[in-house]
């Protein structure tokens, strides 16, 4: 390598995620143009994202399509397909989040029907997915009562980007030490604008509020 020439400093002032953000914008325009509303579902592993989706697919009176993100296996896609919705599984391998390019490839495969509601179930992870716009219209973060009420304070980046926070597994409240009001306060502390719902995806508590939120333009 030749270093004889003097070094030159070039000012760039470019957004690091410009490429992802541009792709995400294109995804959003494509979806909006087809009357499709896209929801990015994020949480830690095991919070009940897929269970909530299975039930939503069965009960919501609107066509639903799903993009499933996991590091490995088609297990979640199998569950969604069995519930009756078209689904594409994205396996990220070592990757810890979905990005706009992966979402676009999945969208091209899935081809969700016009007017449908599209859920993108992100890789279970309360940190990395918060940075990557996929082209969604709204972001939902799920936290379950078995995880602890302090999660919003411990993972504030994720809760700060949520439009809606769903506190799930309320059927287990008698058996765990989880203070719902404290959790609500912690969510509001890091994100004063977030809507908060409490549900049990298995027993059905609170689901009418979830469906109303989805229908209300989310």
């Amino acid at each position: 390598m030749c270093y004889d020439e003097p070094a030159v400093t070039v000012t760039l002032e470019e957004r690091v995620l410009a490429r992802n953000d541009d792709l995400a914008r294109a995804n959003r325009e494509l979806l909006t143009g087809r009357g499709i509303r896209a929801i990015n579902l994020m949480s830690s592993p095991g919070s009940g994202k897929t269970t909530l989706l299975e039930r939503t697919v069965r009960e919501l009176r609107r066509p639903v399509a799903v993009i499933e993100g996991d590091q490995r296996t088609p297990l979640d896609a199998d569950r969604i397909r069995a519930a009756g919705a078209p689904v594409v599984q994205v396996n990220t391998g070592a990757g810890c989040h979905l990005d706009a390019a992966m979402t676009r490839r999945a969208l091209d495969d899935l081809d969700p029907p016009p007017g449908s509601l599209l859920f993108v179930e992100n890789v279970g992870n309360l940190i990395c997915p918060s940075l990557f716009d996929l082209g969604e219209h709204a972001r939902v973060v799920i936290v379950s009562v078995t995880e602890g009420a302090d999660k919003p304070l411990k993972y504030p980046y994720m809760f700060a980007v949520a439009d809606l926070v769903v506190i799930n597994k309320t059927d287990l409240l008698p058996y765990v030490d989880f203070d719902v009001d404290a959790c609500r306060r912690h969510v509001t502390a890091v994100n004063p604008g977030a809507t908060i719902l409490t549900v049990s995806a298995t027993r059905g508590d609170g689901l009418p509020d979830w469906y109303a939120w989805l229908s209300g333009g989310g």
Partner: peptide, 26 residues
Amino acid sequence: PLCPCGSADVTVTAGRELHIVSMEVA
């Protein structure tokens, strides 16, 4: 997002930057 005065009526004005400022090339 809370002011030391106790108010939560605040707007974030800095802290969300993620920019490539410059580079030095040979």
